[in-house]
Amino acid sequence: MSETGAMMQGRAWKFDHDVSTDLLSPGTYAVDPVEVRMIHTLESISPGFASDVRTGDLVIAGRNFGCGSSRETAAENLKALGVACVVAESLSRLFMRNAVAIGLPVLICAGVHEAFADGDEVAVDLAAGTITSGDGDRRLQGEPLPPEMRDILAAGGILALLDSQTAG
């Protein structure tokens, strides 16, 4: 799992504004196991995403990513597919909490939707809160996650943290 200050590098999958939890985790498969759910991630707007996304790829999006319900499966599906980080203009509050709770790094970064294209190679520095293009030409400063949230990510999620607390 990522550590505080983790660097992540990979191919960007770009999405628009208001990508909802209904798109990330369609209600029809809401109670199916993750192996089934992940196949349907974003299928109605990007049919090839679930089959083609590779471990370490990143998701770049516009405003209000993850809007809609409290379903944690929205973040869990992306993590199960190997997505290393979600970088968006803004994130819905619940998606952000859930992502951190299950150990999926996220970064809020104004201008990211405009600055990068689908398929770009990008690198994210979580502690610094930056995203940089593979050739180093474009670099944007986002809002670094506060240490409290990075600690949960570093532990591997809030349940891993709980496990270590109750074991301790």
């Binding site: 944690e72 619940l94 859930n98 709770a101 999620g157 349940l159 709980l162």
Partner: peptide, 21 residues
């Protein structure tokens, strides 16, 4: 009063606490 996800709820059910901004 606000919504949280399932992992966070398991944490709350166990500890009675949660972090917030």
């Amino acid at each position: 009063s606000t919504g949280i996800g399932t992992s966070e709820m398991a944490y709350v059910m166990a500890t009675g606490r949660l972090w917030f901004r």
